[in-house]
């Protein structure tokens, strides 16, 4: 569904992504793990169009989207949940969700999707008139995921959904991610919490200082010695 070929990104003189290639097939959860500064977020931002590409290609269902603007990519079904729970704090939960469907014109379906989001996250329905800034961290994470779903994405890009959340909540968020995927949305997940990410991912890539150093199924990587040593705290 999504294919990246030899992607290169520079921040000024810093070569942030070096010839990255990866594929996400329809219906998969693919995770990108790696240490701080490895280029995980850069990869997501480049896919969603927030960063410029210096070289290489991004294909969505065979069609190049490398030079499309971010809004055009959202229209094609790529939706990003940015890192760090970026809600609109002064707006209500409802208004936040409404903005997720900003580019859509099909009012009836929007209403249906809103119902779906409320069903998936009952706490959001309960708090729909509250300003989003007053929600707890976990609720805010649910809100940004709900907001991203409001654009009816075909592929959802999740950037560190577990960041700063209590372990119990992390587990909940990950089971929701799995649910969303089972309902038919393809997911590309960037995570520092490698063990959690590998446990739900079909396939995974490991990024190190801007290059992909390893790839395989979630299970394979979770069992690999190098991964255990570097990311999972194993011996």
């Amino acid at each position: 569904m999504l294919e990246i070929k030899n992607l290169n990104v520079y921040y000024g003189v810093i070569h942030a992504l070096k010839d990255i290639s990866l594929t996400v097939n329809e219906g998969e959860i693919v995770t990108l793990i790696g240490a701080n500064g490895a280029g995980k977020t850069t990869t997501l931002r480049t896919i969603s169009g927030l960063n410029k590409t210096t070289g290489g290609e991004i294909l969505l269902e065979g069609k190049a989207i490398t030079y499309l603007s971010a809004p055009e990519r959202v229209k094609l079904g790529i939706s990003q949940v940015p890192e760090g729970r970026r809600i609109f704090p002064e707006m209500t939960v409802f208004e936040n969700l409404e903005l997720g469907a900003y580019l859509r014109k099909d009012k009836n379906n929007i209403k249906k999707d809103l119902e779906n989001v409320y069903q998936r996250f009952p706490i959001l329905a309960e708090r729909r008139r509250q300003t989003a800034g007053t929600l707890s961290g976990g609720e805010q994470q649910m809100l940004v995921m709900g907001r991203a779903l409001m654009s009816r994405p075909r592929i959802l890009l999740l950037d560190e959904p577990s960041m700063g959340l209590a372990p119990l909540l992390v587990r909940e968020i990950f089971s929701i991610i799995k649910d969303i995927n089972e309902a038919g949305t393809t997911i590309l997940l960037v995570e520092q919490n490698a063990s959690m990410a590998l446990s739900i991912a079909h396939r995974a890539y490991v990024l190190e200082t801007g290059s992909i150093v390893m790839s395989g199924t979630g299970e394979e990587l979770a069992r690999s010695n190098e991964i255990q040593k570097a990311y999972l705290g194993g011996e």
């Binding site: 969603s48 927030l50 603007s69 971010a70 809004p71 990519r73 959202v74 229209k75 939706s79 990003q80 949940v81 940015p82 970026r86 809600i87 609109f88 704090p89 002064e90 707006m91 208004e95 409404e98 903005l99 997720g100 900003y102 580019l103 940004v144 907001r147 654009s151």
Partner: peptide, 23 residues
């Protein structure tokens, strides 16, 4: 209007607004 809502979302969080597909 929805244009106005887009403007407010830029004030609230520009990166989030951008990733919602707001120009």
């Amino acid at each position: 209007s929805s244009h106005g809502r887009a403007c407010i979302s830029i004030r609230e969080d520009e990166i989030a607004a951008e990733s919602m597909g707001i120009n």
